[in-house]
Computed example of a mutant assay.
Amino acid sequence: MQEKFDILVAKCGKSIGLKGEIHLNIYSDFLDIFTRGNIFRCGDLMLTLESFNVHKNSAKFSEINDIESAKMLNSHNLYSSKTLTEKYCNLGENEFFWFDIIGLKIYDGDLLLGEVAEIERIVGVDYLVVNVDRDLLDSGASSNFGDFGNSSVGVSSKNSKKKPKQKIFLIPYIERYIIKTDLKNKRILTQDTLGILEES
């Protein structure tokens, strides 16, 4: 089975010069992924990296050799594979790939809030885009779990009567809210995130 190239690493920008060089808007934290010879998918094209200028964030692909071809890639996303990402991107302690976090369950205390659908980076901060748990939407937090003002979640009783209205909400992936990312049990333990949902 052919491996999928579905890990977003960059977006192609404007062409540079006459020989097909392209400016990249980088989404990956690991520039080693842009190693000469690596393969990327851009739309229906499979591209081989010929060179990468780390100072200019510009790339030259073997298959793109003129300005017109380069212009056709403008605004198209560039994808790597999971295998190549794991090979070239060395994680530090308490660091995780986005594709490992997507699909994890979000808990605030013992309360299941939902599941990570995707991750967005906004002004340098990663946000978990969470699909709210359907049971929570259908019943409302207060009807299932009583007065949260007296619980370890730390949400005041003033807000505990609110029923989540949105199917999606955002959680900043920062220490203020994230207690532990538990890949083994496929969950993320958080604090004070029910309040974010109720105020969304």
Rank of each mutant, 00 (worst) to 15 (best):
G114W: 04
V132C: 00
E68H: 12
D100C: 06
D108W: 05
L128H: 03
K87L: 14
F61M: 11
N90T: 14
K105H: 03
I64T: 02
L84E: 12
S69W: 13
F97D: 00
F96Y: 14
E115K: 10
I106M: 10
L137E: 11
T83I: 12
T83V: 14
Y79L: 02
V123Q: 07
G114L: 02
C89V: 03
N77K: 15
M72C: 12
E86A: 08
D133A: 12
I122M: 01
L84H: 10
K71S: 09
E86C: 10
L104E: 00
V123M: 01
K105V: 02
V132H: 00
L128E: 01
I101L: 15
L128V: 02
S81P: 11
D66N: 10
N131Y: 08
K71W: 01
M72R: 15
W98E: 15
E120H: 08
L136H: 12
I119E: 10
K105F: 04
I122P: 01
K71I: 05
Y79H: 06
I102K: 15
R121A: 14
S75V: 06
V116E: 01
C89N: 11
S75A: 03
E95N: 12
V125E: 15
N65E: 02
L128W: 04
L84M: 12
S69V: 04
L104Y: 05
I101T: 14
Y107G: 03
D135I: 14
A70D: 08
F99P: 01
D66E: 07
R121E: 11
E115R: 11
